[in-house]
């Protein structure tokens, strides 16, 4: 029982919450780029928070159901259709054998998530079902691939209040924790960093997101490599920020001005190139409180 890939796309991969305990072995965290949309997908179907979903980047994917089950599609609006009819997102849907699911061109956002009741039963590699192409762990979906899952006749849904469905077309402000070398940047450098509009460039993938803007003069270009947290903001040799994301290497040697709050990175994952972006400071207390609330709501625990 599975979904079969009829047409593959630019980049669709199986992802779960990530590979959280292998940094010691030099592995990336991996996992879904938009934790918010992914968490809703599983939540709508009453799944455990860590069930594997398909992350569809920029659309172009077609799947055929070879199973009767339930799905939920969240995240980017990539013109999701069932049997060529526009289908509802952010909602549990019953699927029958033979149904064709397709995603076309992006209307809003970048990444859509296909969650299935019970999760996709892809191979567990190093403690996670997440694919990491940079590390040669698994592969992207290609034509003929089968995505195994179980069948279900009945399911109970949860509903989403419309206020939780995000608008991915707005410019964003990323809240930044003052971490790492924050105190080594001068007041002038920090002012320049927090008081400008950056622009998301095309160099923007699962590894990191490069921004363009006015460069910050840095005195220390490289330093001794150290462990990297998801969302760390490196200031590269050219004085411009790179936000390190799920597939980033576990260690790195550029100075870091701070770390973006994880739930704001979920918003970043849905922004297309040329979107304007600003940073503002966030306190540790505030970040932990907001993240804990999110974890409690979606029953995320380790």
């Amino acid at each position: 029982m599975s979904f079969k890939v009829i047409k593959s796309s630019f980049l669709s991969t199986v992802q779960d919450y990530g590979r959280l305990t292998h940094g010691e072995h030099g592995m990336s965290q991996s996992g879904v780029m938009d934790e918010h949309a992914y968490a809703w997908g599983n939540h709508l179907l009453n799944n455990h928070f860590n069930k594997a979903a398909v992350e569809i980047t920029f659309g172009g994917l077609q799947l055929e159901a070879q199973v009767d089950t339930f799905i939920a599609v969240t995240g980017a609006d990539l013109d999701f259709r069932i049997n060529d009819q526009a289908a509802q997102m952010w909602h549990g849907l019953q699927i029958h054998k033979g149904d064709v699911l397709s995603w076309g061109n992006p209307k809003s956002g970048v990444r859509a998530y296909l969650a299935v009741k019970g999760g996709f039963d892809a191979s567990v590699l190093f403690g996670s079902r997440s694919i990491n192409l940079r590390e040669h762990i698994g592969a992207k979906l290609t034509q003929g691939d089968e995505l195994p899952c179980r069948s279900f006749d009945t399911a109970t849904y949860r509903f989403i209040s419309p206020k939780y469905v995000p608008n991915y077309n707005q410019d964003i402000t990323l809240r930044l924790l003052p971490t790492y070398q924050f105190n080594e940047f001068s007041i002038n450098q920090r002012d320049l960093f927090f008081n400008q509009d950056y622009t998301i460039t095309n160099a923007n993938d699962r590894t990191g997101c490069r921004l363009s803007g006015a460069p910050i003069a840095i005195k220390k270009e490289r330093m001794i490599s150290e462990g990297i947290s998801y969302g760390s903001v490196e200031i590269a040799t050219d004085g411009l920020p790179i936000i390190l994301l799920k597939d980033a290497p576990s260690i790195g040697g550029y100075p870091k001005i701070g770390t973006v709050f994880s739930l704001d990175l979920a918003k970043l994952a849905q922004r297309q190139p040329n979107t304007k972006l600003r940073f503002e400071l966030m306190s540790m207390h505030e970040a932990q409180k907001e993240r804990k609330k999110f974890n409690d709501f979606f029953e995320i625990s380790f």
Partner: peptide, 22 residues
Amino acid sequence: VIDVIPSYTSLHVSYDLNKISF
């Protein structure tokens, strides 16, 4: 403790914020 990343002069440690504050 969730994970550790040793490097040249430092140790990166991630922890479970559900259970303990910074």
